[in-house]
Design a protein around this nucleic acid. Structure first.
Lengths: 217, 217
DNA sequence: CGACCCATTGAAATAAATCAACCTTTGTGG
DNA sequence: CCACAAAGGTTGATTTATTTCAATGGGTCG
């Protein structure tokens, strides 16, 4: 079965580095990770944050090596899936194939939003947008019951995701706190007013939900 | 055969708008296009520029509607490919399936670079990077023989791609011109020093080339 | 000819980065 | 258990990149 093999990893461990020879794809079973690139000047740009349920590294399949690095932000459980398993599935079970395509699309949709954020949203709106995305994704996978959740992401990491400096992220978080929208404290986010936060971010949640007929609803 | 049906479109025509019900995917046969999103404040973020040989709109397949808009920048020829054709191909011909996965990856790789650009590269470097990407892609598809090429992209459009204002793009282009690296004039880019331009952009071309065993080399 | 889009340039304003300092928490080794 | 280092967080002052505002000129198309 897809994803039966499991590997446990610690925070700050790297699942793969850019350019590593990997053809496996990884299903995140548990924990927070981030996919990023390092520039020649050492700057880092996080591309997106794979969470449980996400499949990461389709690039590996096609290219035979990793095109981004993937690092654990918390203790994490992953299931490697071999290239041949994926190809096998693509050429036999069309229901599963559709699921995989959906995962690819999910991926892509988040990258798209991310790009829109970094290119055209102010630091404040951009940050709010990412936080809302996290909250909704966690709700979708059932990892968030009340309006708060663990958030093993330092302000520096957040900065790399948002294309900002850690210092500026800190100031933005203060703004969000002082506006009573949300608080980030000791590795935990508490959302005080999700509606206002979504309004601030002009957040359109449709890109996060699977299409009709995909789930059992 | 995939891509035998052809549609001709004019510059500024829109192939599909975000949220249009389309399940087709499109093979660009000829011309320049751009995929973008419009924000609620009217700002536009271009996600990437599909060129001939690219397949656009895998999202359509999975979601059943377009997740970005796709517009022609020049006269363009496209071939619609139905969802069923894609699925059919995915479940029979694994050689073609691999090609399609490669196209998806290509897409993704360009988006990644784009995101890295907008998040972490200066306006100058970012602009240079995009121009170099164009030059190399055109060379790969055989559409560029000497060191210049048609470029039906206004400075405003370029700005939307780079997350800058048209005015600033203009100033950046002046810098590139005055440094004798490249010139953009009346819809044509002339590259004077590709090596220096690539050095400036810290351009790593590997993400543009198909993997070993994919082509006939 | 007039309208519109695109390109260009200057000056002023602003968002975010950088520089610098200090504080808190966490983990580590003596 | 304390001392210390290391990482992360907070805040202020200054600088810089980029935007915004404003104005002008060149094409092109009806």
């Amino acid at each position: 079965m897809l994803g039966s093999r499991q590997r446990r990893m610690e925070a700050h461990q790297v699942i793969f580095y850019e350019n590593d020879a990997v053809s496996d794809v990884f299903l995140i079973q548990r924990g927070w990770t981030c996919a990023y690139k390092i520039l020649s000047d050492g700057a880092r740009q996080i591309i997106y944050f794979p969470l449980p349920g996400d499949i990461v590294g389709f690039s590996n399949l096609v290219v035979g090596k990793a095109t981004t690095s993937l690092e654990c932000l918390s203790e994490t459980i992953i299931s490697p899936i071999s290239a041949s398993a994926i190809y096998g599935v693509l050429t036999s079970d069309s229901k599963v194939a559709q699921g995989i395509l959906w995962a690819m699309e999910q991926d892509r949709a988040m990258m798209t939003e991310h790009l829109v954020s970094v290119g055209r949203r102010s630091a404040l709106v951009r940050t709010a947008h990412l936080i809302v995305e996290f909250a909704l994704r966690l709700r979708l996978i059932g990892a968030q019951t009340d309006n708060s959740f663990n958030f093993p992401v330092s302000q520096g990491v957040l900065a790399d995701a948002l294309g900002l400096t850690a210092i500026h992220v800190n100031r933005i978080l203060r703004q969000l706190r002082e506006a009573d929208l949300m608080t980030l404290q000791s590795g935990r986010i508490a959302i005080h007013d999700i509606d206002q936060l979504m309004a601030l971010a002009a957040f359109d949640p449709t890109y996060l939900s699977p299409p009709r007929g995909m789930t059992d609803d």
